[in-house]
Amino acid sequence: MNDLDLVRTMRVDAPIPSQRRLDTGREQLLAAIDSPSVAPRAAGAGRRFGGVWGLLLAGGVAAVTAAGVAMATRTGGSPVTLHNLTPAAEWAKYADPLVERAAFGWLPDGMRANGYVADSQDEKYFQVTARTGKAKGGKSVTLTAYERGTEPPLGYLPGGVPAKRIPAMPINGHRAYWIFKPDPSGQSSFELRWQYAPNRWADLEGDQIPGDSAELTRTAYKIAESATFGGSRPIALPLHVGGVPGGLQPDRTVLNNGAYGQVSVIIGYFAEPSSELGIGIVESDLRNNTKPRPNTRLRGYPAYQTPRLMYVYGVNGFDVQLSASGSILAELNRTGGLAGLFNRMTILGVDEANWTTNPVN
């Protein structure tokens, strides 16, 4: 299972998992959100958190407040400064939160890249997925490029079995090994890892790909050998939001652009010790009857609003979910809280021609 498998559960009614649930491990998390793994695969430490708000959080705490400016330092990371928004609003400049650091070259017929994840939590990586079909049983290929550093952990296979390096032929002359190798039994999954440059690693995962062991091996190598890394193309998103407090950097950005027949976006921010901001949109689904019942209207749209959580329905074909807490929420409250943030949002619809590569501020 890759991140887009989890993102498909990001409906506007999805609950926010507690930190205790996050700590119970990947297998229990998948069960908690009713999204069982469809393929044996390794679960690397510190990555592949699910696509719901609570999964944007990371550990490590140290914060002080002085002169109205909150300073937060993440363990193992850079300081985060939350700048107060003046009545005129301090419009921080943000780079595009989703940049194509890796890309497919060749893909099997009928497949295209339609899901992206940029994660800057403990184990930083960029991930691109190609998936077919609207159901969870469709074919999928996922390429993960890790930020420069040491070899990522092997993690565990489902059932708690420690993953091991399985010898593999080099990829473009670079060291490679299987984490989950195609076998003669006819299973349709694999995970291949290689060191595509000094101190840079990539994983390629396939699921429900047709073919026997030899055919799957050829498919995996053809995809891996044609993949490219180190790109800088910004990926456009179907929303724009202004008034995000300055000094924040997105911990996690997810675009589902047609995988599972749906368009959805998550942009998540986190500041120590326990402050977060989640911005998400998902295509409206009239068949979903489990949404919180509206208790107000915002800009004419039916909405459900609490001080920390908000849903707004039917905005240019999308449902909007906003959540905030701690010092980030305190800053937003200076300019109208979550309602004020929604008032500064523009939903750009499903036509990619209207999307923007500068979605924040």
Results as ranks from 00 to 15, higher is better:
105 G>P: 02
100 E>Y: 07
63 A>Q: 11
108 P>M: 07
71 M>D: 00
44 G>T: 03
108 P>E: 09
62 A>F: 07
78 S>K: 14
133 G>A: 06
109 D>A: 15
96 D>H: 04
55 L>C: 09
106 W>T: 14
137 G>Q: 10
78 S>P: 03
45 A>E: 05
70 A>Y: 03
40 P>Y: 04
99 V>H: 06
119 D>T: 02
125 Y>C: 04
136 K>V: 12
136 K>D: 13
74 R>Q: 15
43 A>L: 04
81 T>R: 13
137 G>Y: 08
109 D>Y: 07
134 K>Y: 11
59 G>I: 07
59 G>W: 08
122 D>P: 00
50 G>P: 02
39 A>M: 05
120 S>M: 05
63 A>W: 01
108 P>H: 09
121 Q>H: 06
124 K>H: 09
130 A>N: 12
65 T>W: 05
61 V>H: 13
131 R>K: 15
58 A>Q: 10
89 A>E: 15
133 G>H: 05
101 R>V: 03
61 V>K: 12
43 A>Y: 00
54 G>L: 01
94 Y>L: 14
110 G>V: 07
39 A>E: 03
40 P>Q: 09
40 P>R: 10
98 L>H: 05
119 D>F: 05
42 A>K: 01
117 V>F: 00
101 R>Y: 06
80 V>F: 05
66 A>N: 06
100 E>R: 15
129 T>C: 06
91 W>H: 13
46 G>H: 02
90 E>H: 14
73 T>E: 03
60 G>I: 09
107 L>I: 11
52 V>R: 03
117 V>S: 10
48 R>I: 00
100 E>F: 04
64 V>Q: 12
64 V>E: 13
57 L>P: 02
78 S>L: 14
128 V>A: 06
50 G>W: 04
84 N>S: 14
62 A>K: 07
92 A>H: 12
100 E>H: 11
79 P>G: 10
116 Y>N: 02
88 A>P: 00
69 V>R: 14
61 V>F: 09
130 A>R: 10
114 N>I: 05
81 T>L: 14
135 A>V: 05
69 V>S: 09
105 G>Y: 10
134 K>N: 14
115 G>V: 07
136 K>A: 15
102 A>K: 00
127 Q>L: 13
120 S>A: 13
125 Y>I: 01
44 G>Q: 05
94 Y>C: 13
105 G>V: 08
73 T>G: 02
132 T>P: 00
48 R>H: 04
100 E>V: 07
60 G>Y: 08
119 D>V: 03
136 K>W: 06
77 G>W: 03
88 A>N: 12
94 Y>A: 14
46 G>F: 02
130 A>D: 12
70 A>R: 09
125 Y>G: 02
94 Y>S: 13
113 A>T: 15
124 K>C: 05
59 G>Q: 14
98 L>R: 04
68 G>K: 06
114 N>M: 07
81 T>C: 04
124 K>V: 08
46 G>A: 02
82 L>Q: 09
45 A>F: 03
111 M>G: 08
99 V>Q: 10
82 L>C: 08
59 G>C: 08
116 Y>D: 01
118 A>Y: 06
41 R>D: 01
48 R>K: 01
56 L>M: 10
80 V>T: 15
70 A>I: 01
96 D>G: 12
87 P>A: 11
128 V>W: 03
68 G>F: 03
91 W>Y: 11
137 G>I: 00
50 G>A: 14
101 R>N: 10
46 G>N: 06
102 A>R: 01
75 T>W: 07
109 D>Q: 15
107 L>C: 10
66 A>T: 09
74 R>V: 12
64 V>N: 12
50 G>I: 01
